[in-house]
Design a protein around this nucleic acid. Structure first.
Lengths: 324, 324
DNA sequence: GCCACGAATGTTAGCGCTACCATAACCGAT
DNA sequence: ATCGGTTATGGTAGCGCTAACATTCGTGGC
């Protein structure tokens, strides 16, 4: 930067201004500085800038995983909005391990990220304490609570589970099955389903809880376990679309007709849900919008704007397709 | 940090050492410092550390996209290896726009990332110049070239295309079709296929080039276009599994028998490729290993180890399943 | 008892920027 | 001619750490 300043015949601070707020520099000076930058190949050191200004222009995001997953779209949406505003995304994946979130959050805070996006509303007390102490904007996502750490963008997993349950019951199914991972949001979906079932006399629900971080294969295995029962469920609700599609494929393979012999529903409305045959009934939750909105809330805060309300319920929509 | 030092009755540098190389601090001192850290809730400022040590412990990764994509697994593998070593991942997505890579690289270099991972081997001259000037370890991925910028982890897309082509020809198909996105690696796969076709008298190949960044829907549309021809291809090779699965689903819907009426093959071997019916023939390329290996090469360099050879050809494997 | 040596800790001087305040030059209004 | 206000630019002092080089102290060998 000193070289650039010398070459352009100005002081360092003017170079700094030319880069960050070109409007405040005289056009002629600006041109000289730009020429000098080009000639020297100068790349501003944003680390030094962050230290001096105590704003890093980095946002940390913690998600369970991004492969064949509903969270990939959230990260995508977030990343696009942030990049357009000149912010960068520091990505951390927990693989559904609770302690991983804690250490990621600590690492991100050490980097002095300007804001943080978390998945879900269940965090260790230490994490919550650290985030509050850091006094940076935080957005929790993919769930709903009345008392978020700071801001929240999501929907009610419980209500979504209940809505899907009512859909199945309305179609006449009475013996229901549920398959989900051992994680908070999956459990909420089950709780909603169970509540819907409790409202209908004679309706029952059987539950399989798998390890967290499930995929197609697990869905196949789960549906097989149901089909082997003397009295299998008539309709099965899977905690995510990957599980449901695995199950759907297994049914196709075995000649189990969907939905006549076994109805199947998923969750999250991945692109592929609409493409399989029969098309998968699922709950659309706007994965991408969650990411975009979370990023927008952060940007608003960075620019000093008030964010109200701090809780954004993006809702959900039961998408009834041929599989139920 | 000053507070911690005062509380523990040591100098700042000892606190710094206690955090970074605890073995070099006397156990009793270490214990006092750790207690002081806990009492004060001190979180080391890694930005300041980066500036002072000129090592950021951040790696930048540029991928086209991470949703329902082959690159998600690469990012996942990379991220896990890096996090285990105390490095963080700064993620950038280009959405297949060429200029996006350039600006991401520039932003990452401004952050003084310790290393960089790029997708593919085609980069703008400006990007290459900048990367060389930065003199940091760089890994290119997902393709092969004799002259990488620095290191490379991938496989030959051309050879993979050719191998898949030979597989189709060996099964007796003569009128082939190819559908791929308008991007470098897809074109290489086509070039390989075309070469294989050229070796067999009477064999032909018809090509559809779509916009880059394709998904299920585009596969469906593409297969329809082929099926409407007076003499459709007998076998169709799709540049990625998502396209192929879209096509497969469309065939199922239309009663087009796969592979009897139309054989279908994909590329990359996503988890779902093995799950659909009929199971999808595809080319397995170790998406995740690419990420892991790229991360390992970077770590080796960070630790000052020599990396030889600098080109890692991870190969590929034609996975012949029921769809061809 | 002296010295060389390694282990433990400290001092100093930045890393490369930006915040903050100051200064200079120029403008039109009085 | 004087003045307040605006625009353009500069000087100084850090931001919170760590590299590099001291310094101190205890230990064992002779």
């Amino acid at each position: 930067m000193e070289d650039v300043a010398r070459l352009a015949g100005v002081s360092m601070i003017t170079v700094s201004r030319a880069i960050r707020e070109p409007a405040k520099v005289a056009p002629a000076t600006l041109a000289r500085i730009e020429a000098a930058i080009r000639r020297t190949g100068y790349v501003p050191n944003l680390t030094a800038g962050s230290l001096a200004s105590s704003r890093s222009r980095i946002v940390g995001a913690v998600v369970p995983t991004i492969d064949n997953s509903i969270f990939a779209e959230t990260v995508r949406g977030m990343s696009e909005v942030l990049e357009a505003a000149g912010y960068q995304l520091l990505l951390g994946q927990t693989a559904y391990r609770a302690d991983a979130e804690d250490s990621l959050v600590q690492a991100f805070l050490g980097r002095r990220v300007d804001g943080m996006v978390l998945t879900g509303i269940g965090h260790s007390p230490a994490t919550v304490r650290r985030l509050r102490a850091a006094a940076i904007p935080v957005v929790e996502t993919w769930d709903l609570t009345a008392r978020p750490i700071d801001m929240l963008v999501g929907f009610s997993n419980r209500d979504a589970g209940a809505a899907l349950g009512r859909h199945l019951l309305a179609r006449g199914y009475r013996r229901l099955g549920f398959v989900g991972g051992a994680e908070e949001r999956g459990r909420s979906r089950y709780a909603g389903l169970a509540a819907a079932v409790a409202d209908v006399p004679g309706a029952t629900v059987l539950r399989q809880e798998l390890a967290a971080g499930t995929s197609y294969k697990d869905g196949r295995a789960a549906i097989l376990r149901f089909l082997e029962l003397p009295e299998p469920p008539q309709a099965c609700f899977f905690g995510n679309d990957a599980l449901a599609i695995g199950a759907l494929m297994e049914c196709a393979r075995r000649g189990v007709r969907v939905p006549q012999d076994m109805a199947i529903a998923g969750f999250a409305d991945l692109d592929i849900a609409a493409e399989v045959t029969p098309a998968l009934t699922t709950v659309h939750v706007g994965s991408r919008q969650i990411g975009e909105e979370a990023a927008r809330l952060l940007l608003a805060r960075f620019e000093g704007r008030r964010v109200a309300p701090r809780i954004r319920d993006l809702g959900f929509r039961v998408v009834a397709r041929a599989s139920t």
